[in-house]
Design a protein around this nucleic acid. Structure first.
Lengths: 196, 196
DNA sequence: AGTTAACCTGAGGCGACCTCAGGTAGTCAA
DNA sequence: TTGACTACCTGAGGTCGCCTCAGGTTAACT
């Protein structure tokens, strides 16, 4: 028990270190978006103008790099949940947030998988952020349920399953095809709303 | 246009060839189930008691091997669709078939992804089988819609999105955790049924 | 200017992918 | 049964991505 917490990347204080950290992160985001979460780390290092060892110094693991690259987005998602929490219609609030979440979950190919793993596996760099996001979503769900707008028998985990499914569909869309995740979410929501 | 069709593996006629083909397929199925669709091909060859070159002779591509390993399952799915097509309740028939499909789609990690790609990308070894399965599902959907049991505005593609989402959830379940795809499917179906 | 430790570099070992030149052995016809 | 044909098999080796580590560099602070 009490495994020491997973390593989380932090921006170095020395000027050269910080510069490289930023460059790697920028290159990583671009590469992930273009090629998915399994993009070549050596490519990322090269594009950042840095030796491979430097990349590993700052981000000892691919998971650590992914966490750093998606940190802001997840935090934003949590913030947004709090901002819509006071809306008139809690169902609208939930739906809007879910749509946002799906979009973030499918920022690049492979992200949903990493996030769903992280959701349940402590010891993963993204776990803390995921847990926070889980709570955000759970609160919105609860509010919609308390208002009688969503079936009472839906659990947060089920909500995230549906959400992940939508994100997966989105991230696996053919390059040309349009986004079908909105429709997915719409259908899912209709299976979830309370029919008086 | 008229790209030549994708290569499909076929069992050789010579005795040694057929033996090795079978051994590789058996080893591949086991490996895929244990480690997902990206299991090491060299391991598979070794476990089949065959040199790596032999594996590539029969299955020039990972996709070809996956196709061969899942061929029977897909065919079975199509057959089953035809067998339930005459059932009393077309919604029941559809639901039962979807549940089966989800189970087959998540035979091993990575399969759903391959199948959804194959669904829309001709030039993929599994495309023909996927297209056949697509039609099977579409027919069941159509029957349920004609009977007024399912909303008329659902398209086959949407059906398969939902189905893939469920399969993805299932194949990404934590080793310990129980299967949540049944519940997923149940919720999805409730968003799809016609409300009188 | 000197010291220190944070930082950077890139060669190199490992495993997986895939190819190909050369060897082996089923099969069939005579 | 024998010979010839050719489908089939083998495994060394080139490529690439992962990751480590011994040794060199330099920012930052005194």
């Amino acid at each position: 028990m009490a495994d020491n917490p997973p390593y989380i990347a932090q921006r170095p204080k020395r000027a050269d270190g910080a510069r490289n950290y930023d460059a790697i992160l920028a290159a990583a985001r671009k590469a992930f978006e273009a090629e998915g979460s399994d993009a070549s780390l050596e490519d990322i290092a090269a594009r950042a103008g840095v030796a491979i060892g430097t990349l590993y110094r700052h981000f000892p693991t691919r998971a650590v790099l992914v966490e750093a690259a998606t940190r802001d987005g997840l935090a934003d998602l949590v913030a947004r949940a709090e901002s819509v929490a006071g809306d008139d219609d809690p169902l609208e609030a939930l739906a809007a947030w879910m749509s946002r979440a799906v979009r973030h979950f499918s920022t690049f190919r492979g992200l949903v998988g990493i996030l769903t793993q992280s959701m349940y596996d402590e010891g993963t760099p993204s776990h803390a952020a995921c847990a926070a996001m889980h709570d955000s979503g759970a609160r919105l769900l609860r509010a919609a349920q308390d208002a009688g707008r969503v079936r009472a028998d839906i659990t947060p985990d089920e909500l995230f399953d549906l959400l992940s499914g939508a994100a997966w569909v989105r991230e696996n869309a053919l390059p040309g095809g349009r986004d079908r995740s909105e429709r997915f979410l719409q259908l899912v929501l209709e299976g979830i709303v309370a029919h008086e």
